[in-house]
Design a protein around this nucleic acid. Sequence first.
RNA 1: GGUUCCGUAGCUCAGCUGGAUAGAGCAACUGCCUUCUAAGCAGUAGGUCCUGCGUUCGAAUCGCAGCGGAAUCACCA
Length: 596
Amino acid sequence: MIEQNLQQAVAGALKRLYGIEVSPDTVVLQATKKEFVGDYTVVVFPYVKQARKSPEQVANELGAAVKETVAEVADFNVIKGFLNFSVDDAYWVRFVSDEAADPDFGITKPNPSASPVVVEYSSPNTNKPLHLGHIRNNLLGWSVSELLAANGANVKKVNLVNDRGIHICKSMLAWLRYGNGETPESSGMKGDHLVGKYYVEFDKHYKEEVSQLTAQGMDEEEAKKQAPLMVEAQQMLKRWEEGDPEIRDLWTKMNGWVYAGFDETYRKMGVGFDKIYYESNTYLLGKELVQKGLDMGVLFRKDDGSVWCDLTADGLDQKLLLRRDGTSVYMTQDLGTALLRHNDFGAEQLIYVVGNEQDYHFKVLKLILGKLGFGWADKVYHLSYGMVELPNGKMKSREGTVVDADDLIAEMEVTAEEMCRDHGKNDDMTPEQLKELYHDLAMGALKYFILKVDPVKNMLFNPAESIDFNGNTGPFIQYTHARIRSIVRKAEEQGVSLTASLAAPAALTDKERAVVKSLHDLPATLSAAAANYSPAMVANYAYDLAKNFNSFYQDTPILRETDANLRLFRVKLCALVSVALKNTLRILGIVAPERM
RNA sequence: GGUUCCGUAGCUCAGCUGGAUAGAGCAACUGCCUUCUAAGCAGUAGGUCCUGCGUUCGAAUCGCAGCGGAAUCACCA
C-alpha cells in the first residue's frame, strides 16, 4: 500500500540525507487536512534536531528525495514542518479499477482451519424478556464477531443461557400459585413475556409479605429471608437441584416458553449463535479446577472449609471459589466454562461481551486462570461496554421504565413504515417486500444508533433521536447505498460493464478524489476496528464514506457524463462505494437495501 | 472510603499510536428538486476540549492532583 511505501521512502531518505535511523512504521503519516494541498502528510519535527536544519529545509529535502523514489508521488509542498505529498491520480484510478468488481472489497475471508476466536454474548436469564440493555449487548456481540471474521478470524459465537437458579424458581412458583395454568397459547403472550409476568407477580406478592412481616416488628433483612414465598422458592431450588421430576418438568416447560420467545427476538435482531451453553449443564464445572488449584498451591482453604484465591499481591482482595458447604459460586463456574469452551473449540481466544459492571469479575477471572497455569489466560478479553441510559435516567423495572426489546423493535418498524409512506417511493413493491424493507430500515436505525457509540462509554438512548432517519443515522447510509445501486443497475442496463478496462481520466475532481481516498481507507479501518474491538469505528467510517459520496453525487454527472471513459470510471467508483457500504453495514448487522 | 471507567458545541457523539485554524449530526436560520432516489446537498451560527500543574518543539490526546458523573468492592449471578 501507498502508506507503507511512503513511510519506507521517508525512513530511507532520513538515513541517506542525515544518517538518521528510524523504523518506517514510526514515521508519522497522516491524511492531509482538507484546507491544505496534498493527500498524505509527514510531520518532520521529530527529525529537525538530529538533522540540524530548519523544519522547512528538512521537509523540502525529504520531499524531493521521496518524490524521486516513490513513483506514485506526483508532487509535494511544505508548510512549516509539514511535508504534504500529492499522490498521482493514476494511482487512485488504478485502485478503483482494480477493486471495482470485487464484492469482498475490504474483507479478509475467514480461515476455517485457524484456531477459533470464541465470542460469548447475550447470555440472558430466563426469567424475563430481553430489554434495551440486552439489545446493546446482542448488537455489539454480533457485530464484533462479524468484524473479527471480516479480518480473517475463525469466529464462533456462543451464548451461555442462565437457565437455573433462584430467579427462575420465583417465576415458577408464582406461575403455580397465580397462573391458573396460563400458557403462551392460552394467553396469546410471547413465552418470555409470560414468564416475565410471573416474575413480576412473585416480586409483588413477596414485597407484600415482607412489609407485613416488618409491620409485625421484624427486621427488614430478616423479613426478606423469612418471607414464605422466598422460603418456598429456596425449597424449590433445592428440589430442582435434587432432580425432583415435578419441578424439573415445570422448569423444562417454562424455559421452553422462554426459549421460543428469545428465538423470535433474536431472529428479529438478526443475531444467532454457533453453540448455546446452558448453565444447568455447566454450573457444577470448575470444582475440579479448584482442586487442581489447591494441589498447585495457588488456592487455599480456610478453617471453615471455604476455598479462596489470594489476589492481594495483584492489588485485589481475596476471592471466594467454594463456599464452606462445598458449593460453587459464579466465579467457579466461569472458570469451568472458560476451560470447557477453550477445549470445545480449541480456541485461540475467548471474548466475553459483558457490561462494565462486571469489570472486576473478569479481571479476577483472568488472573485466576493465569494462576492455574493456563497460558491462554492473557488472551481472554472482556469486551466491556457501558450502560444504556434513558433521558430521565437509568432503566428501573420498579418504575416501569424498562424498554422492552420487542416493543422497541415494533415501534421502530411502525416509524419506518410511516417514513416510507411519506416518501412514497416504493408504491410498486409487494406487501412482503415492503414489510422486509420496513424491518430492515427499522433495524438499521436502531443498530446504527447503538453501534456508532464507542462501546466503553455509557450511552444515552433517546427514543426520539433513535427513530430519526436523517443525518448521522443508519437509514442515511442505507439510502446512500440504495441510490448508488439504482445508478449501477441503470448503468448495467445501458451496457456499462464493471469489468471493462479503463483509461486514466485526465484528472480527478476534488470530490472524486475524496471518495476514492475514503474507499482506500477501508482495509486499514477494518483492521484498526478489529484491533480495538470497536464496531463504532466501522459505523463512523461508513458514515464518512456515505457523506463523501453524497457530496460527490450532488454535483457530478455519472450516467449523464458524455465522455465514455470518465463515465465508466464514475460508475466503477459508485459500484465500489456500494460494495464498501454494503460490507461495512453487514459488519454492523445492517441490511443494505437495493432500493428504498 | 479503595479500585476502575467516563467528562469535547444547547443536545447526542467523532477526533487512530501526541501534530497545522478541534469535527459531524440533531435543534435554529438561508439557499438548492422540469435533470442519475431532496431519507440528499451547499451555507450561517454555535467551543475556557471539566479545572490546575507538569512532560514536549508541539497536548483534547501522555503524567500527577483536584472537581463532577457512573460502575464495582457478596459464602448473588
